[in-house]
Amino acid sequence: MHAPISLAKVDVDASHRYGPLTVHDGLKFSVAANEFICICGPSGCGKTTLLDMLAGILVPSSGHVHIDGTPANPKKHSISFVFQEPSTFPWLTVSENVATGLNIKGAPSDQVRSKVASIIDIVGLKGFEDYYPHQISGGMKQRVAIARAFATEADLILMDEPFVSLDQPTREHMQREVLDIWRHMKRTVIFVTHNLEEAVYLADRVLILSAKPARIVAELPIPLQHPRDPLSTEFTEIRSKCVQWLHASH
């Protein structure tokens, strides 16, 4: 894979309200380039709103969301998004789906072909290139969505509980795969999850959000080497610290 050209540094200081409902009130944090952070919080703390602001498709009511110093804008910045819900296009084959982001960016077709082939190999969908989404399992569809997000080699990759619909073994497998891709490609990743174990397993740093109006209640660096062992004492210690913060955030 290529060395990163632009390094997406994210800087958030934003409030957002829908009518009388304040979703975020002075939410403030920053993410270093190539950092992998996980955001955890209670249900309904406005994580989707936060991700939409980070993706530049929602402008905060006040404050700013900056990527490399300018307001987040999907046409200017190189951003990818893995959604929680199924998001593959049913009328495209697996490889056409994976190529979507590259095609939007107008990449030349030979480059699209080679990138799609290599990313399909990484997510373990080799042999399924010409299948349509209805012919493969839900877990495989999510892998297609992940491959699509990583294929563009975006500087910033946003992931909204991408594994929530997967069973435990597939989930663990996908976590390892995402870490693997991230280590290959070194991008900035912001990963939202309800699952603290997942967060501690994946992230360089875990941010804990409070209930609405959401603000950051804790920032926990995870100074453990990959691959991490969820049964090790260091892991469980950090995990229980996260649990305490999450409970305190309600």
């Binding site: 498709i57 999907p74 951003i79 998001s87 939007i104």
Partner: peptide
Amino acid sequence: PIHRKVGIVHGASKLWILRHVVIPTVM
């Protein structure tokens, strides 16, 4: 809406979304 959003987050134009999301859905 999620299919539109896939286009938007990748920086797609309105025309791209019409051609690659709306028309295939409505076909």
